[in-house]
Write a protein that binds this DNA or RNA. Sequence first.
DNA 1: TCATAGTTTAGAATTATTCTAAACAGTTGA
DNA 2: TCAACTGTTTAGAATAATTCTAAACTATGA
Lengths: 144, 144
Amino acid sequence: MGKFAHDESRDMAGRATARLRQAGLRPTRQRVELAGLLFNDCDRHVTAESLHDEVSKAGVKVSLATVYNTLHQFTGAGLLRQVIVDSSRSYFDTNVGDHQHFFLEEEGLLIDISGEHIAVSGVPSPPAGMAVDRVDVVVRVRRQ
Amino acid sequence: MGKFAHDESRDMAGRATARLRQAGLRPTRQRVELAGLLFNDCDRHVTAESLHDEVSKAGVKVSLATVYNTLHQFTGAGLLRQVIVDSSRSYFDTNVGDHQHFFLEEEGLLIDISGEHIAVSGVPSPPAGMAVDRVDVVVRVRRQ
DNA sequence: TCATAGTTTAGAATTATTCTAAACAGTTGA
DNA sequence: TCAACTGTTTAGAATAATTCTAAACTATGA
């Protein structure tokens, strides 16, 4: 057994801290906790509310305002990407690579579609003086 | 000169009334006014707020709640379609045919892309028990 | 350890939207 | 034409997601 009782969570915190520093964000307790939840396992889709519930249930005290701040800071730093599929809430995606989404409208659930699979063709040239920023595809599905 | 001083607006109102009846909606003063603004010229993209401003400036008294109700009723009746591009407001599109959108993020402006031009390929089959409802493409553009 | 600049937070404020219930208005049948 | 019925509109309150404020806190570098 290692020197510490919590080697695993120490590693997680360590990785989160490194990632935050790389992004130019001061690794505060709250940011390290949130980054730990967001980035240590597989890709995830969260809302401010869902992430706040999750961190709270893990016994960590982080205010909802901080969750909002952090999600926006992470997005600004390129660690997250905002996904717009629902006019009543914002989703954030830990997968910032080239991909699109299925959206299960009844459950409010997002599923990634790899950018290798999906392609959009025939996009006309943008209006004069405008440049394409991003092409978003949302495949809305429902229980059949 | 015709029997009435406002043949043109009578026609517009008449067409709006017919369209509402076809859709199974009672042609009230408010609905006729709003349908007149929405459907008499070319395709349009409106928000509840923008349509309310417009109808108010035209000197017609319609409450904002009624504008919201009406936009949803028209959408339910297939006369409008809701476009989700911005997490802070809902847009409604009078073009209910097959098409996609440019979204000018800085100005909050939508521009139609004909369904003839654009195509999405390589959409994987949806999760088990789910059927594709719609595929939405948003080409986000900004001043270059 | 200290000073500083960046962070967090509770709670208020904001904004888009929906709800409520009372007044109003199309429609229908007599 | 006229009730009377039912659907519609409305003001204002309520809701929900998000942002703001300003005071308390904390990571950091000297």
